[in-house]
Structures are given as C-alpha cells and as structure tokens.
Design a protein around this nucleic acid. Structure first.
Lengths: 221, 221
DNA sequence: GGCCGTATGTGACCAAGTCACAGGGTTTGC
DNA sequence: GCAAACCCTGTGACTTGGTCACATACGGCC
C-alpha cells in the first residue's frame, strides 16, 4: 500500500483541501502492530492521534481485584477518540488498549494533529464526531452495567461476537471479561442457554443454534 | 456583573489574545436558569458551548425501569464537556442535565466556538482538558458500578455530598439515584452505618458523626 | 385532629458475585 | 509415551445486592 492510500479508508477526510491532506500524509506514518500488543495503558499516554486501517483494538479497564470489562472496540475506519481526548488534554489514561488482531494504523503526531484541527473545519467535525460516538458508547456501557440483567447482556454479546455461522471462539473467562462479571456467572448462563437448546458449547467455543431466541432475549424490555 | 467579568472565573482563558477574548465576549451571553431546569435531555441537543459561572448541573441517565444514576456534575469553573462533544459531533445526548441549584452560565454559540477553536491553541487546550477530565470521570463511574461494593460507594458519596458539618440533605431515594441502585439497598446500608454509630438519620437528612470510619471504608482495598 | 403525600422499615424472595474445590483437556518437557 | 503443569469448565454453599409487597411513620395542610 502506498503511504497516501489510507486516506480512502476515511470518508470523513475526503473533503479536506489538498494542502491539508498533503500535510497530513507527509507527517503521519503507517504503523504495524502484532496481535497482543499493548498500545497504551495507565501511565502510558499516547503521543499520536490514531486512525485504524486494519484489525481491532480492545479498550478495557482492569479492576484491582483482577476483574476486567471491555469499554469499546476500535476497528478499521475508526479513530481512537479517547486517545484524542488524552492527547489533547494532556492527561493520562485510566484504561488500557490491546491489539486483538494484527493491526495497521496511521499515527498522526500531536503537533500535526493540532495544526490540522486549527486549519480544517472538516477535520474538526471528523474528530468530534468520532469522539461523540465513543462517549455515547460509554453511556451505553454504564447503563448496561448498572441496569441490565446479565442474561440479556450475555445474549447481546454472543450475537455481537459471533461470525456469520453463529460460531464464537471465546472462553467463558473471556466472555466474563467482556461484560465485567465473573466466570462462574457466564458458565451458569451458558448452561441455561444450552439447556434451552439455543446454543451448543465446546472447549473454548460456542455455537448459536437458535439466534432468534437469543435475539428476543437480547431485546427484551 | 458586567458581561466581560466572567472571564476571570476561567484561569484557562486568561492567556487568550485580546482579539480572541473580545470575540468570545462579544458573541456569548450569560444565561440564568432556576433550580430544576432541564438543560438538555435525550433528543434535545444543545446549541451552545457552556461555561458554568454559578451553581451545579447534574448529568444523569435514567433507565427504562425508572432507575437513575448520576454520571457527573458540572459546577462553577467547569465546562460541560459532553455538551462540547455533542455540539461538535452533531450528535444527540443519551443523558439528561438538570440544574440542581439556580445556575448562571456563559453560552458560546456553536459558530463562535468553532471559530475560536480554530484560532487559539490555548482555547483548544482548555476545551480538551475539560473533556479529558469528564472521560476520566466516566471511566471511574464504570469501574465503580461494575466492581465496587455498594457500602463503599455509599460511604464515598456521603462524604462527598456532606457539608462541612457532616450534614447531608438527601432522601434515601435520592442517594439511590446517585449510585444507580434501589432505595431499599440504601436504607439498609444506612441502618447498618447507624447501628455502628457512624451516622444519625432523620427524615430527608443524614448527619455524619464518625467521618473517619466512613473514610476508612470508602478507601478500603 | 384528620387527611394525604412522601419517606422509611421490613421480610421474603430472586439474581448475581464469591469462594473453594473437583475434574477433564491440552500442552510441554522429558 | 508419560507425567506435570496449565487452562477450561462444572458445582455447591454462601454472601451481597436488587425486587416486590406491604406496613409504618412523619410532616404539612386544611
């Protein structure tokens, strides 16, 4: 891929004037990271604005008791809005980001980012729209953790993370970390789903056999 | 108060060049709102960037079952960062904001805001720092809701919302809405605190008699 | 005083998280 | 090929937190 090709991944950037686009391309670079890389964490503020080209990054929080919860995912075409916040606010993260797959991303240095924010209304809109989406995500997480039943949340998550065949390669522990709960809770819920014939389970994987039943639970009042 | 006096409330704005300050002051206006005003809510995106001069605004989320949780408060000297996000991202809020007291605030129209963001690095820094703080707050809320015990959270909140005499004028229902839990849970915890001699309760109010004990619980591992 | 709306108390029950531990697969190293 | 180590899953007993259904109790206000 030529270095300037990545712009085509971000519709929000097409309308930028040529000179700004040129500045963006000239000073940014494409980085490749292997799956499992810790991209940032508490005390490790990033120094660049990130645009994802390929792969997914998981942003999660870890409690002192070792329990985890996934806050959101950043995938191709997204920017990491929290990076943006902390980049600009010069604040440290409370969360950590991990590459779930091999990742390719554009890194725009802080100075360039600030410069382009100043020069382009469209770039501002692009950044703040992404930001706004993330904040909405965080609100949804709070609402679900505070108010939603665990069976409903698990059903949602299973549907979300299944491939088109209804296959999910996650352990109970990993699902617990998605939802911020304990492994035993997931095991019991999955047993219940299986007892009802909605899924089948095997070591490290789950297959959805009745997606409709799960969907109905997931959208229950 | 003269219209330009409010700038002194925001140290982050002092360093702005005179022409930018003048633009800010010229196009913004000071608004007064009585306690109880609903400032924004789902479907009611605000149309201005808000700087708080006096009073407090509570930003909360309401579940469909009627339970509530406080996300954060905006008080004098703060900006409403979420307003900022949604203002710039042109997105709707999922939460609502209520004036807890009589409120005075500066409203900066969207166009002016965008203009000044473009012109002033210091203003950008001011806005994004505020934003960053809010995001950190949201992370803390998620962590607490997902992982912290309710007695610890209640102790924290009691200390937070007590005046210097250790007096708190909140009903059990209101405390439940602060923490996103049920009224009965708060009642039982308060009874337990009272049984231990840490607080005394009366209708609609609580007095802390042993702040140290509460503090110890609030900072427990 | 009697009424009414709101605040609080309580017991029974259900949902979810914790703890301790038991097996069963898989992988690793020999 | 085998054993040890590790990870994944199952399970029972228990604690904590949330729900439901009421019962009181308090504070204004006629």
């Amino acid at each position: 891929m030529h270095s300037e090709d990545w712009v085509s991944h971000f519709p929000g950037l097409h309308s930028l004037p040529d000179d700004i686009l040129a500045a963006l391309i000239a000073s940014s670079r494409v980085v490749q990271l292997p799956a499992g890389t810790r991209i940032f964490g508490p005390g490790h503020a990033p120094d660049a604005f990130i645009l994802m080209l390929r792969g997914t990054v998981r942003v999660q929080q870890v409690s002192d008791t070792g329990r985890e919860i996934v806050l959101y995912r950043v995938s191709a075409g997204d920017s990491c809005a929290l990076t943006t916040a902390c980049l600009m606010g010069y604040d440290d993260y409370q969360a950590e980001a991990l590459a779930e797959t091999d990742v390719a991303a554009v890194a725009i240095p802080r100075a360039t980012f600030d410069d382009i924010i100043a020069r382009s209304p469209d770039f501002r809109r692009f950044v703040f729209t992404a930001f706004s989406r993330r904040v909405t995500d965080l609100f949804r997480v709070i609402e679900e953790v505070a108010f939603a039943r665990i069976d409903v949340r698990l059903a949602q998550r299973l549907l979300e993370r299944a491939n088109t065949d209804g296959h999910i390669e996650l352990t109970h522990q990993q699902l617990a970390a998605e939802l911020g709960t304990a492994r035993e809770v997931i095991s019991r819920q999955l047993n219940e789903f299986q007892r009802r014939g909605w899924i089948t389970t095997s070591r490290g994987a789950i297959d959805i056999t009745q997606p409709e039943a799960l969907r109905q639970l997931a959208t229950a009042p």
